[in-house]
Amino acid sequence: MISVFGSANMDLVAYVDQAPKLGETVTGRAFHTIPGGKGANQAIAAARAGAEVAFLGAVGDDGFGIALRAVLVEAGIEVSLLRQLPGASGIAHIVVDGGGANSIIVVPGANGEVKSLTPADEAMIAASQALLLQLELPMEAVTEAALAARAAGVPVILTPAPSQPLPDALLDAVTLLVPNEHEAADLTGSPDPAQALDLLLDRVPEAVVTLGSKGALYGSRTGDRLRVAAIPVQAVDTTAAGDTFVGALAVARAEGLVPAEALRFASVAAALSVQKAGASTSMPHRAEIDAAR
Rank of each mutant, 00 (worst) to 15 (best):
M1I: 07
M1K: 10
I2Y: 13
G6F: 08
A8Y: 14
N9P: 11
M10N: 10
L12W: 12
V13D: 00
A14Y: 03
A14R: 08
A14H: 06
T25Y: 11
T25L: 13
F31W: 03
F31Q: 00
G39F: 03
A40K: 03
A40Y: 11
A43P: 04
A45C: 02
A47T: 07
R48W: 00
R48Y: 05
A49T: 01
L56A: 10
G57K: 12
G57Q: 06
A58D: 09
G65A: 10
G65V: 11
L68S: 09
L68V: 05
L72C: 08
E74F: 02
S80Q: 14
L82P: 01
R83V: 12
Q84L: 02
G90W: 10
I91H: 06
A92Y: 04
A92N: 05
A92K: 08
I94C: 09
G99V: 00
S103A: 15
V107M: 15
P108A: 12
A110C: 11
K115H: 10
E122R: 15
A123N: 07
I125Q: 10
A130N: 00
L131Y: 02
L131I: 11
Q134W: 03
Q134A: 11
Q134C: 14
E136Q: 11
A141K: 14
A145M: 12
A146P: 05
A149Y: 12
V154T: 03
A161Y: 09
P165S: 10
P165R: 11
L170H: 09
D172R: 15
L176I: 13
L177P: 05
P179K: 09
H182W: 00
D186R: 13
P191K: 15
D192L: 12
L197N: 09
D198T: 14
L200C: 10
L201R: 05
R203S: 07
T210Y: 08
G212R: 03
S213E: 04
G215D: 01
G219S: 05
S220P: 02
T222H: 05
T222I: 05
L226H: 03
R227E: 15
V233F: 13
A235C: 00
V236R: 09
T239G: 02
D243W: 01
T244E: 01
F245N: 00
F245S: 06
A252N: 02
A254D: 00
E255D: 14
L257P: 01
V258P: 04
L263S: 05
A266V: 04
A269H: 02
A270F: 07
A270I: 09
V274G: 01
V274M: 01
A279G: 13
A279I: 09
T281A: 15
M283Q: 15
A291M: 02
A292Y: 01
R293W: 04
